[in-house]
């Protein structure tokens, strides 16, 4: 099994779906953020798998490079997201997103 691209892609798809479920279903902003991290990692897994099963060694290396960049982007996203969470927590005293409804009409 570990020798087939399909297996990795399906695994990545599963993790992606889990992540999107978490994003759609959880109420806590940090939980949602973690779910997004899961999704990004799922994508990374597909990228690395594509690379590893790619046409040549260069593509494999390319996959790793892209995955590295995605990790860095995820780090930046997490920084921003957590800063916003802390800022809103200071105002609202709750991390639950569905209680942020001051503007809904």
């Amino acid at each position: 099994m570990s020798g087939s691209l399909d297996a990795y892609l399906i695994l990545a798809g599963l993790l992606f779906a889990i992540g999107s479920f978490g994003f759609l279903a959880r109420r806590n902003a940090i939980s949602m953020l973690m779910s997004i991290e899961l999704m990004l990692n799922a994508v990374n897994l597909s990228i690395v798998a594509f690379g590893a099963f790619g046409t040549d060694a260069a593509m494999a290396a390319q996959g790793s490079v892209v995955a590295l960049m995605v990790i860095a982007v995820a780090a930046a996203e997490a920084t921003v997201g957590l800063a916003i969470v802390i800022a809103i927590y200071r105002n609202k005293r709750t991390p639950l997103v569905d209680e942020y409804d001051a503007m809904s009409q």
Binding site: L9, I10, G13, L14, F16, A17, I18, S20, F21, L24, A25, R26, R27, N28, S31, L96, D98
Partner: peptide
């Protein structure tokens, strides 16, 4: 309350996504 009210539809949607991807 960990989940929002639309957790069940979200679960269904996610399962559908997983199946489609697979």
């Amino acid at each position: 309350l960990v989940f929002q009210t639309q957790a069940v539809p979200a679960a269904i949607a996610s399962i559908v996504i997983a199946i489609i991807i697979a």
